[in-house]
């Protein structure tokens, strides 16, 4: 059994985890104090012969204390949340040198679209991969998230990242992974009967590996197959 979060592997992951642990500790202290006081009172003031209840009906000082202290705590937590949230979700603060990929969600798969060698997504040699998202390590990546049918949610627990995919919109999100490896990608929003099996993998390569992989795919896409056949021809290896 595990009690702590699995280590995060994105650049903003540690910031989110720090916030989580700070809140966990604060709420944990409040929890134990409250339960301790409750149990102490339950034992101390249980009904016994010869002892009458004291007449206490309120205390302004106590009310002010237990309103003000929580107020300060939640205010601090809200203020601490703000910069982390901006770091993850504010499009104005997204890194400028990011590698861009389009991910299209549909019942019940993820299709990743890579730009051709000229940087355009509709180029002759642009290509798609099914249920696999290949990205380079230590390089910011911007994903343009789209949905063809219902709402899905792009969820990579190890990145601490979740973003809903909405039909009719293209929503940008970003991440930068700090460790190579394969990470589970799941759908977090109920999207129909196959919701549970709408999963994939994010495969994080070294820069060099990624360039090789991409070059191979661009060459395969550019030579020969065109149009819709292209996607099918290329998904063979990567499909589950």
């Amino acid at each position: 059994m595990n009690w702590l979060l699995e280590p995060s592997v994105s650049t903003f992951g540690p910031d989110i985890d720090r916030l989580y642990y700070i809140i966990l500790v604060i709420t944990g202290i409040i929890f134990f104090l409250t339960q301790f006081l409750l149990i102490y009172f339950l034992v101390k003031y249980r009904r016994r012969e010869g002892r009458k209840a004291e007449y206490i009906h309120g205390s302004t000082r106590a009310e002010i204390l237990w309103t003000a202290v929580p107020f300060v705590i939640v205010l601090v937590l809200a203020l601490m949340s703000r910069p982390v949230w901006d770091e993850v979700k504010d499009p104005g603060l997204f890194p400028e040198d990011a590698y861009e990929v389009t991910v299209v969600a549909r019942q019940f798969e993820w299709e990743t679209h890579y730009a051709g060698s000229n940087g355009e997504f509709d180029a002759e040699d642009s290509f798609t991969v099914l249920n696999r998202l290949h990205v380079p390590v230590n390089q910011p990546v911007i994903i343009h998230l789209e949905s063809e049918d219902v709402i899905h949610s792009f969820f990579v627990p190890r990145f601490r990242l979740k973003q809903d995919a909405l039909p009719g919109r293209s929503i940008p999100m970003w991440f930068e992974v700090t460790e190579t490896g394969e990470y589970e990608l799941g759908c977090a929003e109920l999207c129909g009967i196959g919701h549970y099996r709408m999963d994939g993998l994010v495969i994080v390569h070294t820069q060099e590996e990624f360039e090789n992989w991409k070059a191979e795919r661009l060459a395969a896409a550019g030579g020969g197959s065109v149009g819709s056949d292209r996607a099918q021809a290329l998904t063979g290896e990567d499909s589950q």
């Binding site: 409750l38 009172f41 009904r47 106590a62 237990w66 309103t67 929580p70 809200a78």
Partner: peptide, 29 residues
Amino acid sequence: VAATMIIAIPTGVKIFNWIATMWGGSLKF
């Protein structure tokens, strides 16, 4: 975020008041 944090306060206040009601009482379980 701020509004949600703030709504925790009156909820917490209620909990503290219930516990304080038992303070000095003669509790029958």
